[in-house]
Every structure is written in structure tokens, then in C-alpha cells.
Nucleic acid binder design. Structure first.
Length: 482
RNA sequence: CGCGGAGUAGAGCAGUGGUAGCUCGUCGGGCUCAUAACCCGAAGGCCGUUGGUUCGAAUCCAACCUCCGCAACCA
């Protein structure tokens, strides 16, 4: 099988506000899901996203907002979900880690690993930062002995009983796994990084919190709560625990940001090995982008809202602009200026104008009827090229190819000067019109994956049986002036 | 000696041994079917620095300079 049928995004931390970085990851996954549906059929693909909710910070945020934890979480999760709805994400299910189906699965896996002997009780001594929800080394603290990222919170000296996951036992199995499955983690640079990390030695990791007031209780010791990331990773498995979905697991594929590669490519596979569950088909770690060359941050105020861009330019522009501006798997940059330029040149001047001019031409000179008996163009190789790019997850490559196809059609138009030809030699012109029509059909088919919101409009313009529909504006070049 | 990535035309990037490419921008021309859009052409690069390997290096090796991420839970 060339494409995975079960695709996941990370579950996003519920306290955050969805920003353009999250959207990038989710749109990339959405594109792969749409492509998988094209290849395998709608019912053969399952796309999961969701929210990560079992955190101490949730309790604090709810208290600050003056609402119950349940209400707070429900509101925040709804906010994420509506963002994805607004920007046109075709997820099949949205999982929340406070849902019973997830809690049950976490209990089940935790128990399994415990029974196997790979979770054991021990003591952890250390400095703990509530802000990071992690233990700190003294070298991580500032002069005042506080966390660099959360200088306003006290560092706690914890000496608590914890349950540990025997990650150290999986050093060898993991290395063997990577040896046998060289393409499991992409891109390659990330794989090398992970392998050298594993080789540097793995230590057992704490998987419970005694002091946490909110979270999933350990099945064998309810006073302890499961450590958030241990619970979070399991969401991918929780999401398909129904009879009709179970078969998806064997073809699971995780799309993640490069920052969480270690969790997904060291701990998660080790957890699954311990629980006796087959590993997913693969993981892809994408890169991060800066905004106008600067790292995105709330304090700098350069965080861009995906919803704002969607409102101004439309969902297709948002996804195409993000996914085509730099290679999937590399880091890049995104700027409002470049985005407006992309919209104006590639979408309005390229795709939109081509559909408009061809539709108008055919309407004007052939009364809207294309002669499908003409030989036309054999564009099958072009479509195969498109498929091969997406199979390799070259999202930017696929968009570049799309726009190159637009250019090819425009060139054909200009070199044949069909608007002159139509007045002199109607038969010759008819053949060219059929060719141009074939280009539009190809572009509308690829748009199902790359420009899904525009695809129906394209089909409407192409019409049925060679009878083109009315021309319409898909990408208004005037929009950039707003 | 913490780990990793990057330095190629005005901007953003591709290019892992054999005459420097792409997108956008700029300039000139063409066309007038089209969303002031489309097509053609041109200018513009000692491929970070220095040294080395080679018949030949943006591409391999060494050193150095600069920038940027990460350093167990922000995509």
C-alpha cells in the first residue's frame, strides 16, 4: 500500500489558542487524508485530530476563568474544533483525552505494560516546575533558582513515589526497529537524530504524578495520575477502538511537528512494544516556520490567526499558501507580503484567470460546447506525476506541479492564438479548445486534493458532456487590497 | 568541545563531481480570449571565507566566520 489510511495530527494542548502553526500541521495532514481518500475511497480513510486536556494548567486556567474544569475544557475543545471546521479540515473524528473511551484505553495499556513488568514503582527526587510540568536540573534554573520560562512560579523540591516506564529496556529493540524500517521516520535527517539519541542511552522515565489533582488515575494505584504525555500519545490508539475502526490501526501514520519527535519516535514505539501492540506504519516530522523571519511568539505579537486569513482570502488560499511556501519536512518562513503576492500571481492570475479565460473563450466561439470527439490531450502521465509527488509527501512539489500545469495551459493558449484561429479555421480551433478543456479537467481533479473548496466551482465551470458552465471568479485578485 | 540545520541573482529557495537553475520582483517586447490578466525575451551570482583532494567542486575533505533552531512535553 502506497498511502496510509489512518492519519493523525498531534492532539493540541487545549489551553492554547489555535494559531497558524497548528493549522499548518493540520492542513498538511488534511491534504494527505484527501489524497488517501482519492486513492482508496472515502470509507477507507480515517483522519483523527483532537485536544490534549489532562494537565494541571487546565485546572488553574479554569479557576482563573471562574468556571468548572468541565465547562472550561468543553469551551476550549469546541474552539479548536470550530477552527478546524472554519478552515475546512476533513477530520473524521475529534478526540478529547478526557473522554471515557480514551481513559479506558489508557487504563488498559497502562495495566498491560505494568503486568509485563515494564512499569515499576520507584522514587523520584528533583526540582519540579509547575509551569513546565517537568523536572528541572539545577543548571536549567536562573540565578534566583527559578525556571527560566516560568520565573514567577516557585520551584518545588519533590521527593515523590512515582511509577517508571522501563524505557531503558527498549534501546535495542528500537534500534533494531529502525534498522529494519529505514523509512519509518521521515525526513531522514530526523531519523538520524533519533537514532543517535537512542544510541546515547535511554533512561527509564517517570510516568505518574502523585501530586497532580487532575488527570487519569493509575488503575493499580488511583492516588497517582498518569503523566500527561504518556496519556496523550495513547490517543492515536483510543481513537480507533471500535469494531468498525480497528482495522485502521495497521495503517496508522502520524504527522507531527519536529519538536515532539522524541515522544513519537522513541517513547511511543517503546510503549507499544511493551503493550504488545503493532507499531504504526510511519511518522513524518514537519518543520517549523518563522513569521517575517522571526520566531512566532505571543510576546512579539506576530502570531497569525488562521481564521483571519481564511476570512480574507479563503480556505484554499490559506492551505495552498502555507503548504507551497516551503518544503514539507524543512523549516521555512511565512510572511503576509509573500502570501498576498502568492495569492495575486498563482491563484488569481494563474488558476482563476485560466479557468475564466478558457470558459469565456469556449462560450464565445463555440457556444459553450467542446467537441469531445477530438483527440485532445493524453494527460494521464501528468496525473501520475501528481500522484507520485503526493505519495512521497512532497506537498510543496505537488503545488508547484499544479501551477506548472496552469502555466502549460496558458502557454498552449498563447502559442496557438486560438482566439484568432477561431475566426479563421473553426475546426482547428475546436481541436485546441478540446485540449484546453482537458487541461481544465486535469486541474479540477488535482484540485480535489490541493484546492478542495474550489474544486466544485471548477467542475461547475467545466460542466457536463463538454458543455461548459458560466465563468465565475474563484480567486478575486482585488482581495489583496483589503 | 552539548545536538542539529543553514549560508547559491534584489527577496525566497532547488541543485551531493562535469558548461549555474526555479518562483517572485525588475527592465524590454508581444497579445488583447481573460480577474490591469496571459505569453516571449533580457539584466542580475568570483554558489560564506581560506586551504586541500581531483583532469574537473556549489557539490568531497579540513579549518574558520556568520545566522537560526533545539537542549524530554509551544506544529
Amino acid at each position: 500500500m502506497k498511502v496510509a489510511s489512518y492519519l493523525t495530527t498531534p492532539i493540541y494542548y487545549v489551553n492554547d489558542v489555535p494559531h497558524i502553526g497548528h493549522s499548518y500541521c493540520t492542513l498538511a495532514t488534511d491534504t494527505l487524508a484527501r489524497f488517501a481518500r482519492m486513492q482508496l475511497g472515502n470509507n477507507e480513510v480515517f483522519f483523527l485530530t483532537g485536544t490534549d486536556e489532562n494537565s494541571q494548567k487546565t485546572v488553574d486556567a479554569a479557576a482563573k476563568a471562574g468556571v468548572s474544569i468541565e465547562v472550561y475544557l468543553k469551551d476550549m475543545a469546541a474552539r479548536w474544533q470550530s477552527t478546524w471546521d472554519t478552515i475546512g479540515i476533513s477530520y473524521n473524528d475529534f478526540i478529547r483525552t478526557t473522554e471515557a473511551r480514551h481513559v479506558d484505553t489508557v487504563h488498559e495499556l497502562f495495566q498491560k505494560i505494568y503486568d509485563k513488568g515494564d512499569i515499576y514503582k520507584g522514587t523520584y527526587k528533583g526540582l519540579y516546575c509547575t509551569g513546565c510540568e517537568t523536572f528541572k536540573k539545577s543548571s536549567d534554573l536562573n540565578e534566583a533558582g527559578r525556571c527560566i520560562d516560568h520565573p514567577n512560579q516557585d520551584i518545588k523540591h519533590l521527593d515523590e513515589t512515582n511509577y517508571f516506564f522501563r524505557l531503558s529496556a527498549y534501546e535495542k529493540p528500537l534500534l533494531e526497529w529502525y534498522e529494519k524500517n529505514p523509512d519509518w521516520l521521515q525526513p531522514r535527517s530526523k531519523k538520524n537524530e533519533i537514532i543517535s539519541f537512542i544510541k546515547s542511552g535511554l533512561e527509564d522515565v517517570s510516568v505518574s504524578r502523585e501530586t497532580a489533582e487532575f488527570g487519569i488515575s493509575l488503575p493499580m494505584d488511583p492516588a497517582h495520575k498518569v503523566y500527561v504525555w504518556f496519556d496523550a500519545l495513547i490517543n492515536y490508539y483510543s481513537g480507533i477502538r471500535t469494531p468498525e475502526r480497528e482495522h485502521f490501526w495497521e495503517s496508522a501514520f502520524h504527522i507531527i511537528g519536529k519538536d515532539i519527535t522524541r515522544f513519537h519516535c522513541v517513547i511511543w514505539p517503546a510503549m507499544l512494544m511493551a503493550a504488545g501492540i503493532p507499531l504504526p506504519k510511519g511518522v513524518f516530522a514537519h518543520g517549523f516556520f518563522t513569521i517575517d523571519g522571526t520566531k512566532m511568539s505571543k510576546s512579539l505579537g506576530n502570531v497569525i490567526s488562521p481564521v483571519d486569513l481564511s476570512v480574507q482570502y479563503g480556505n484554499d488560499a490559506l492551505r495552498a499558501g502555507l503548504l507551497s511556501s516551503f518544503e514539507f519536512g524543512s523549516d521555512g518562513d511565512f510572511s503576509a507580503e509573500n502570501f498576498a503576492e502568492f495569492y495575486r500571481t498563482k491563484l488569481a492570475g494563474g488558476v482563476g484567470n485560466l479557468f475564466n479565460r478558457v470558459t469565456v473563450l469556449i462560450t464565445k466561439f463555440c457556444d459553450g460546447q467542446v467537441d469531445l470527439n477530438n483527440a485532445g490531450l493524453d494527460l494521464k502521465p501528468e496525473f501520475e506525476k501528481f500522484e507520485s509527488l503526493l505519495e512521497q509527501k512532497q506537498l510543496k512539489g505537488a503545488y508547484d506541479f499544479y501551477f506548472a500545469t496552469v502555466d502549460a495551459a496558458n502557454q498552449r493558449l498563447n502559442e496557438t492564438e486560438v482566439w484568432k484561429l477561431a475566426k479563421i479555421d473553426a475546426d482547428a480551433a475546436s481541436k485546441i479548445f478540446t485540449e484546453l478543456f482537458d487541461y481544465l479537467v486535469l486541474l479540477s481533479e488535482m484540485a480535489v486534493v490541493l484546492l478542495p473548496e474550489s474544486a466544485p466551482k471548477m467542475r461547475a465551470m467545466i460542466g457536463l458532456e463538454g458543455k461548459v458552465g458560466a465563468a465565475q471568479i474563484m480567486f478575486d485578485s482585488g482581495r489583496t487590497d483589503k
